[in-house]
Simulated scan of single mutants.
Amino acid sequence: MSAATVRGIAILLVVAGIYGVGLLTGRAMVGKTFAEYREEVALDVIVDQAYFTVEQNKLNTQLANLSQLHQEEKARAEAAERKLLADVQSGDRRLSVITNGCKAPAPATTGSLGDAAPRAELDPAHAGRIVTITQDGDEGLRALSWLQDYVCTVCEPEGASWSFCGR
Rank of each mutant, 00 (worst) to 15 (best):
G31Y: 04
D44L: 10
T53W: 07
V47Y: 05
A35E: 04
I18M: 15
A50K: 07
I18D: 08
M29F: 11
A50L: 09
T33I: 02
L43W: 09
V47C: 03
Q49F: 05
V45G: 01
D44Y: 04
R27A: 15
A50T: 12
G22Y: 12
E39L: 11
Y19V: 13
I46A: 14
V45F: 06
V21M: 13
K32E: 15
G20C: 08
A16C: 14
L13S: 03
L23E: 07
E36V: 01
F34V: 10
A42F: 08
R38C: 02
R27H: 12
L24D: 05
G17L: 10
I18R: 11
T53G: 05
V30K: 09
A42T: 15
L23H: 10
V21A: 15
G17Y: 03
D48P: 00
F52K: 12
L23V: 08
G26N: 13
G26K: 07
V14E: 01
L13W: 03
G8H: 00
A10L: 02
A16R: 07
F52M: 06
V30W: 09
L13R: 01
A28R: 12
E36P: 01
Y19P: 00
L43F: 11
G17W: 08
L43N: 10
I11G: 07
T25H: 08
L43Q: 15
L24K: 02
L24Y: 08
Y51G: 04
D44K: 10
K32G: 10
D44W: 04
I18P: 08
E40G: 07
T33K: 03
R27E: 14
R38Y: 07
K32R: 15
D48E: 09
R27G: 13
G31C: 04
K32Y: 14
I46R: 11
L12P: 04
I18W: 15
L13I: 05
L24Q: 06
V41M: 00
L23Q: 12
Y19I: 12
A28E: 07
V15E: 04
A16S: 14
G31W: 06
F34D: 11
D48Y: 01
A50W: 01
A42Y: 05
G26L: 03
D44H: 09
V15P: 00
V41L: 02
G31V: 03
V21L: 15
T53Y: 07
E39W: 04
V15L: 01
A16F: 15
L43P: 01
A35R: 06
A10G: 08
R27Y: 09
F34I: 06
L23D: 05
Q49E: 11
G8N: 01
D48M: 02
G17R: 05
G22W: 06
V14Q: 01
F52G: 09
V21E: 08
I11A: 14
A10H: 07
T33V: 05
Y51V: 14
E36F: 02
A35I: 01
T25M: 09
V47H: 07
I46V: 13
A10N: 03
A35C: 00
T33D: 06
G8E: 00
A10W: 01
T53C: 12
D48T: 02
A28P: 02
E40I: 03
I11T: 14
R38F: 04
M29I: 14
G17I: 06
Y51K: 13
A28V: 08
T25L: 13
D44E: 11
Y37G: 06
D48F: 03
L24M: 07
V21K: 10
